[in-house]
Design a protein around this nucleic acid. Structure first.
Lengths: 139, 139
DNA sequence: TGTATCTGTATCATTTATGATTACAGTATC
DNA sequence: GATACTGTAATCATAAATGATACAGATACA
């Protein structure tokens, strides 16, 4: 699983939590405990997905674009980390005569792709607001 | 996701495919395209889970222990790769005052743990026989 | 009983993936 | 025009995954 998904969720939940729904990559990076360039990379992706708006220049940063009660983790997953359940390693060898060796990988691909859809269905029930509430409960 | 899960599935499907339901780590390794030591490590784990029996010495190897129609990928997943959906990277910093930074990780942990259960439910429908059939169809 | 062949497991080397750092152009604001 | 942001790429450092090797222990068989 892609850790950028976690960073994306963290950044958006953080923006939802802030009164102004806005922060710079520097501030977000400190909260997430990583560097600003990494945050900007993820946020740039989220901007293309319509989850935030960008404001350059002095006093700029990222502004949450949408209702935290409606943005689901599934949407975020699809945007920044779709298909990352599947391991990179490939099994077997397409050149071998044995059908197990030559064909199993594509069957596993299908299985992982379908698993991805189930995973998204699960994430679809979780909104930014829900995550925020859970955090407040844990407090 | 752990690639050992893929190796475990491959090895067991391969055993199910063979008339004698038996092969050495050398033969399995060639089919999977990896080295025998890696296969033995995974198989050792599967043996503890009761999926195979081991025969040492000349002409020895691994023997499938169970009905391919009843062994599901969920059982295999639980045995060799449980919890590997979660990324290793940790977000935030427990020492910070901000509750988002200090508490989000545990909420994400919960989310990933529950996702793992859903993933298992999905895998529970897939048997070794099912995978074998799909391979034959792709042939 | 000695030899060959296999598993079980640990260790080390190598490759690959991941994340941090740095740099700089582009853009808005004051 | 100076300042403070984003966007993006390049590079470096570190961590994780995988491959390779080695050897003790177990079994079969001549």
């Amino acid at each position: 699983m892609n850790s950028e998904f976690t960073i994306a969720v963290h950044s958006l939940v953080f923006l939802a939590y802030l009164p102004e729904h806005m922060a710079s990559s520097d501030v977000i990076a400190k909260n997430v405990s990583t560097n600003p360039a990494r945050i900007r990379k993820v946020m740039s992706c989220l901007r293309k997905g319509g989850f935030v708006k960008t404001k350059e220049g002095i006093g700029g940063g990222y502004i949450l674009n949408g209702d935290p009660q409606e943005i689901t983790l599934a949407q975020i997953y699809r945007t920044v980390a779709c298909g990352t359940i599947k391991p990179h390693w490939c099994t077997g060898d397409p050149e071998q005569n044995c059908m197990i060796s030559s064909n199993l990988q594509s069957v596993m691909d299908d299985i992982f792709n379908e698993a991805d859809l189930y995973f998204e269905q699960y994430l679809n029930r979780i909104t930014l607001s829900f995550v925020l509430e859970r955090i407040k409960q844990n407090k």
